[in-house]
């Protein structure tokens, strides 16, 4: 068994898929894993693959052409997932995808396709939830800053939505777990960046004291609930506790 490994970035993963396919070792004899590897197996040889944007681009093009543009969006969402098995899941789906073309997306009987479909659905749902539950805090200079700690890397999945929603605002969405940020200048295009420790600390400062709106919102949130219908369990089903970390109305 040969194991192809790479770091957790879209380019590296796609290059890894390219090289694994190209190795001609037989799909049954290879596996794809993400680094870091915690336990290596004795009877496996490991090959580290470095990101190569040219190879990655080829994979993207062939997915779009041979399967469908929608399939590429699904692959991208899966690549953003927090599941450690994601690379293997994508690879096993692509076997079907390249063999059958776009009908492969409908073959939910196949465990490989079903796993891929499920992973895509989960990541998509998480991204959607963060579109709903991201909260901005107003910083001096009319900058809106938001912190999130998602499980999957939803930054690139949510930022386009916010650049459509708030086109004429300065805003930053910061992924606390990965220390990455989507920055959007007023009337411009958003870009992704990695934050240094100093920048991160500056942007994590507590909210402005003189901003009345968080308190107004908390008051509204309390009063809009009907006492006679109270059902915290239903609330937790829609808005799980782990997502409430940076949500204004649940701040103590």
């Amino acid at each position: 068994m040969t194991v192809f490994t790479c770091e957790d970035s879209p380019d590296a993963m796609l290059t890894c898929i390219y090289d694994a396919w190209d190795s001609r070792l037989g799909h049954r004899n290879i596996r794809l894993m993400l680094e870091p590897l915690y336990e290596t197996e004795l009877f496996c040889s490991y090959r580290h693959i470095d990101a190569d944007s040219e190879k990655a681009g080829k994979v993207v093009r062939s997915i779009q052409k041979k399967i469908s543009p929608g399939a590429w969006r699904m692959v991208y969402r899966c690549a953003m997932s927090s599941n450690p098995e994601k690379l293997e899941i994508i690879y096993r789906f692509l076997l079907y995808g390249f063999a059958y073309g776009s009908p492969a997306l409908q073959m939910l009987q196949e465990p490989a396709v079903a796993a891929f479909f499920e992973l895509d659905r989960r990541t998509g749902n998480e991204a959607h939830r963060f579109m709903e539950f991201i909260r901005f805090v107003s910083f001096p200079g009319d900058v809106l800053v938001s912190h999130i700690s998602p499980k999957s890397d939803v930054l690139t999945l949510t930022a386009p939505y916010f650049s459509d929603r708030l086109p004429s605002e300065h805003w930053i969405i910061i992924d606390d777990t990965r220390r990455t940020a989507a920055v959007h200048p007023r009337d411009g295009e958003f870009y992704l960046t990695r934050l240094s420790q100093e920048e991160f600390d500056r942007l994590s400062a507590p909210a402005r004291e003189d901003d009345p709106y968080p308190d107004l919102w908390k008051g509204f949130f309390r009063y809009i609930s009907i006492k006679a219908r109270e059902n915290k369990r239903c609330q937790r089903g829609f808005l799980p506790l782990w997502m409430r970390k940076h949500v204004t109305e649940f701040e103590p």
């Binding site: 539950f133 929603r165 809009i224 609930s225 609330q235």
Partner: peptide, 29 residues
């Protein structure tokens, strides 16, 4: 779609922004 100079857009699926203690969605003010 949103447009430059104004605030906001709208999605036909609708977006819930929070859930109050009675489990009902809060989407609009």
């Amino acid at each position: 779609r949103g447009k430059k100079g104004s605030l906001g857009n709208s999605l036909s699926a609708g977006i819930c922004h929070s859930f109050s203690a009675d489990g009902r969605c809060i989407s609009l003010l």
